[in-house]
Design a protein around this nucleic acid. Sequence first.
DNA 1: TAGATTGTTAATCGATTAACAATC
DNA 2: TAGATTGTTAATCGATTAACAATC
Lengths: 210, 210
Amino acid sequence: MKTLKIPEATIMRLSVYSRYLTEIDRKGIITISSGDIAEGVGVSPAQVRKDLAYFGEFGIRGVGYNVKDLHRNILKILGLSNEWSVCLVGLGNLGLALSTYRGFRERGFIITSIFDNDPEKIGIVIDGIEVLPVDLLEEIVPQRHTQIGAITVPSSSAQIIADKLVKSGVKAILNFAPVVLNVPPEVELRNVDLSVNLEVLTFNLGGKMA
Amino acid sequence: MKTLKIPEATIMRLSVYSRYLTEIDRKGIITISSGDIAEGVGVSPAQVRKDLAYFGEFGIRGVGYNVKDLHRNILKILGLSNEWSVCLVGLGNLGLALSTYRGFRERGFIITSIFDNDPEKIGIVIDGIEVLPVDLLEEIVPQRHTQIGAITVPSSSAQIIADKLVKSGVKAILNFAPVVLNVPPEVELRNVDLSVNLEVLTFNLGGKMA
DNA sequence: TAGATTGTTAATCGATTAACAATC
DNA sequence: TAGATTGTTAATCGATTAACAATC
């Protein structure tokens, strides 16, 4: 594999392709072309082929791609061939939602610990995971070999939690608090802001309402 | 205002700037430079100025931007100067989370109706909104002047719901189901896939684990 | 005036698209 | 072989960055 820089957009599309392939595979379809995938997910066939070309040759000219093979390859590329241990900090509305969200588990993201400081929440058991006080984070996270931390606390405490997660040795942080976090460069950080998506919608609506 | 095509990335950053300005304004700061904003949100000063330049001249050379003014202008650009009526379909884990998520209300997105077909859920009242059967969607949505529909049903029924929303006259759809929806071009569609974000993380982790 | 910072243009960088030779 | 579809290169398009004149 060459060390070309891969566009992040490519990775996001691979994630979408893989979900589409799950669907196609379930239908018992054996072979699929870049054109079919493109149509299924709403991009161009050239885009599909280009995205895949960053990682190797997965198809057969004149034929297409074997669905199962391609799917397995994409999952491997995305790092989804085995499970990831995820720690969730902050059991507010969003945290509660994520803690029970099936979509994560399906893709191999297993929530192995949940932390919150609200005495009302400590001790609650969600899907077999007991909610623990944040003080125990730095002890439990390494114990459970947790690689990913998800932050769903209020913005005001997000940085403190990020620091604790970093100290506990997580490799990546998914931050849902709408605030800019500082983490060392070796820790992968991704911010998810649910409002941003609504705001792109309303911007686009702007002209059309008046 | 010129009819230049605005990059979507610009809109997403404007959304981030606006949230940062809320914070700055709360601190009582009157004036801010593009450099300060850039540092606060993690982009380049040139980027900030370029993004704003698409929409007009909001600053004073040699001085910077008036925080309140700029904030108001950005909110207006994003279409957030007044409230939006949002309808939520599907009260699963994610739907429940979104229905109580404060982040939306803070930005002017008011959930005015919630629909689900589970008899156990119909009748529940969340923040003053009664959960109604999906059959009533096409009646209630126009009544409440709902412009935006949020879909949090399983992938298998997402298209059916999208069709209902379109028929009911919503102008935009925020789709959380990991499936490609078909809607007429005049309806704005945005897809949010929570797993994609985790998968970008694990891809980036790929090389670092081995 | 001197210093600071904007708004904007030009240069660079990166991603997407189109086209086609390779090959099943 | 003829038709289909990949993998890849080159051309296009778009977004970011750098630089600087305008101006407070």
